[in-house]
């Protein structure tokens, strides 16, 4: 879904670039303030995996392919802010080293394929997981599946809106087409993301991001240990 240069108008690119720059600035500050040191290598590994996985296009429908976007995966593993930073590195390297996705359109690509996954995807995942009780694999997997599918479809809708705002194509035509094909690609995203997160869930559950809520999460065990004595 990488938008090449030429598809979007300059004002749309500038607006999206500005939005992405602001989000990036906040992400840098947030990671500096609160990201656990021990998870820093996980940023490298997650970003590397997402980059490599994005090279694997899988066929969806007669003559069309899709690939993992990875925003939701990054959000689930690293949390929304560090996840944002990780996918930003991925899209930056793709655009600069491999001419994949435009340079002028980079802000739009970062927002659509990155931030939508790391934020909408992450919070949707948490919401669904909480709704289903939170602790079970099923809750985690359902949250991950719903979030990754929805983030791909939302990203495709945003691309359609940006194309229409740029005067490239009519929204009434491009929106259903983009959503239609990405509703299928999103299934691939969901399968891959659930697969990776489930594998870690079994082998290294400590690598799945849990938000720092020191007061809420730390108090009950301390109380238990006091009462237990």
């Amino acid at each position: 879904m990488h938008i090449p240069d030429g598809f979007l108008s300059l004002p749309v690119c500038l607006a999206m670039g500005l939005v992405s720059l602001v989000i990036l600035g906040i992400a840098l500050r947030q990671v500096e303030r609160q990201f656990a040191d021990r998870l820093v290598p996980l940023m490298g590994v997650s970003a590397a995996f997402i980059f490599a996985a994005q090279m694997i296009n899988f066929p969806v429908l007669g003559g069309t392919s899709g690939h993992l976007l990875g925003g939701t995966l990054a959000g689930v593993l690293l949390g929304p802010w560090a996840g944002t930073l990780a996918v930003m590195v991925v899209f930056g390297v793709q655009a600069l080293l491999f001419q994949d996705g435009g340079i002028v359109a980079l802000g739009a690509n970062l927002f659509n394929m990155g931030f939508v996954g790391t934020f909408l995807g992450y919070y949707l995942y948490r919401g669904v997981r909480k709704l289903l009780g939170g602790k079970s694999w099923l809750a985690m997997a359902t949250g991950t599946a719903v979030a990754s599918w929805a983030s791909v479809v939302t990203a495709s809708a945003l691309v359609a809106v940006q194309l229409a705002l740029s005067g490239t194509v009519n929204l009434a035509v491009v929106l259903p087409a983009m959503i239609g094909v990405h509703a299928l690609i999103g299934i691939g995203e969901a399968i891959l993301t659930v697969g990776v997160v489930s594998f870690l869930w079994r082998t290294r559950p400590d690598l799945i991001f849990e938000p720092l809520a020191p007061i809420l999460t730390a108090v009950p065990p301390i109380q238990e240990s006091i009462h237990g004595r």
């Binding site: 879904m1 990488h2 938008i3 590994v45 590397a48 995996f49 980059f51 490599a52 996985a53 090279m55 694997i56 296009n57 899988f58 066929p59 969806v60 003559g63 069309t64 392919s65 899709g66 690939h67 495709s156 691309v159 983009m178 094909v181 990405h182 690609i185």
Partner: peptide
């Protein structure tokens, strides 16, 4: 991740959604 990169020539050559 490197293993995935190594099998990347097997990826579908078809155009992506966009």
């Amino acid at each position: 991740a490197l293993l995935v990169a190594i099998v990347s020539p097997l990826a579908s050559p078809d155009p992506d959604g966009l």
